[in-house]
Design a protein around this nucleic acid. Structure first.
Lengths: 232, 232
DNA sequence: TGTACATCAGTGAACGCGCGTTCACTGATGTAC
DNA sequence: TGTACATCAGTGAACGCGCGTTCACTGATGTAC
């Protein structure tokens, strides 16, 4: 990578940092090229050397955010013994919350209100968006294959329409997982997501106060309920 | 109410309807007085006869939305036999989702990203925001008093910091409920909220497809898990 | 019932500000011979 | 190693548009005597 290319990347990062700062102050919808330029001491047209348009910049920020949360989840998983399935899942779910609270704006960017007028290029964003979910489902599948994950419900008990869709998905290239791993994966995601978003917007604090203890207790309980154990 | 006052109210409603239309098209942050004025065939300064400022208008929209979701939940509850506690709770939770999907913008307004620069007058918004939660906790308390709600966990099992906070709350005027009704109330809220928000932003459809069946199944399961039964 | 007056609804111009994007350009940095 | 040229970074002016809010005002509606 040439010196020039490195400088180019560094400026690109500086622009993105300014964009995040701006979103933090004014909300995700308030990304403004002129504001960014002002912040980093440039004129607005100069930004077009780095991004083709405001849309392009937003897409970059979205992909960065999806990859960032996926990365911390992967790292949290990697720090646990491979066969400690419950420990891995809990670590991954804790990482989801921690990242959300540390990066509330990026969290809002990827999981909150859409930015008016912006249409995400789905061929780029969908794969990035799926990384966290696929990680969880992957751990569940591994645990199931190892006989360490025995959910207290079977696919026959699910609503027929849901069960049929899950069965259809397993065969497809998109979701090569076992159906109950998929189902518990999505249930788990809705649960942690609810806790994190409500906490983020200050809706749970007044009732539980120690939101981290609450969260940890609930995700641990979830693993127990699902009979997810670890090889010791 | 005088004729003039009635006309005044009607115009106020027209302004709010235009504001909702605008949020639908451009996001909650994009409420613009000039845009509203254009839409209803007025000039922007005329709106100041009805709202003291843009902030005031947003507050009105917020309160309307909180009251609207609370009202449909109360109505759903009222349609069930008083002692069918599980039925009442399921109906209320279904109403939460139905309202969210029917009014995605109002849902984003009250539970989504905050509007940049807008600071809610908490003495007005907090009581309105608490109506749905209080309704659920109320039903749980009733059921508990009737011996029809026996949660499979006790307050002793909760994290000490959470348990202590719950105990402290019961005595207070703010939350005169039994601690486990409060706790299960907040757990229930995080669960349904996670399912609804992820559905709203198209994150669950690809896995479960029939999102309503999924939701109904999960809320029913929640009631069963909590040993919430009905007097027959 | 008619008149005088107060209230209210709404206008149009203005203030001072913001935005994304295009364009012709200057000057610096890098590259090939 | 030095020179000629191409590439790239960044500027400043401009286009056409948006915004919330204030102000002095006109005309219609309602009210009190």
């Amino acid at each position: 990578m040439s010196r020039r290319a490195r400088l180019h990347e560094a400026t690109k990062d500086e622009i993105k940092a300014a964009a995040r700062k701006q979103m933090k102050a004014e909300g995700t919808a308030a990304i403004s090229l002129r504001g960014i330029a002002r912040d980093i001491g440039m004129t607005a047209p100069a930004l077009y050397r780095y991004f083709a348009s405001r849309e392009d910049l937003i897409t970059d920020l979205l992909l960065d955010a999806f990859n960032a949360i996926a990365d911390v989840m992967v790292a949290a998983d990697a720090a646990q013994p491979r066969t400690d399935y419950a420990g891995r899942l809990i670590a991954v779910m804790m990482a989801y919350r921690a990242w959300g609270l540390e990066h509330p704006i990026d969290f809002q960017l990827i999981y909150g209100n859409p930015i008016p007028g912006y249409i995400a290029p789905s061929e780029l964003t969908i794969p990035a968006a799926r990384r966290p979910f696929d990680l969880v489902v992957g751990i569940l599948s591994e645990a199931m294959a190892a006989g360490r994950f025995k959910p207290p419900l079977t696919i026959e008990e699910l609503p027929p329409s849901v069960a049929a869709h899950l069965r259809a998905l397993i065969g497809s290239d998109d979701y090569p997982e076992l159906p109950m791993a998929l189902y518990i994966g999505i249930v788990g995601w809705t649960r942690i997501h609810g806790m994190v978003t409500l906490e983020l917007f200050e809706n749970t604090q007044s009732v539980v106060s120690d939101t981290e203890a609450f969260y940890r207790y609930e995700v641990t309980k979830l693993c127990k309920e699902m009979n997810l154990t670890s090889k010791t």
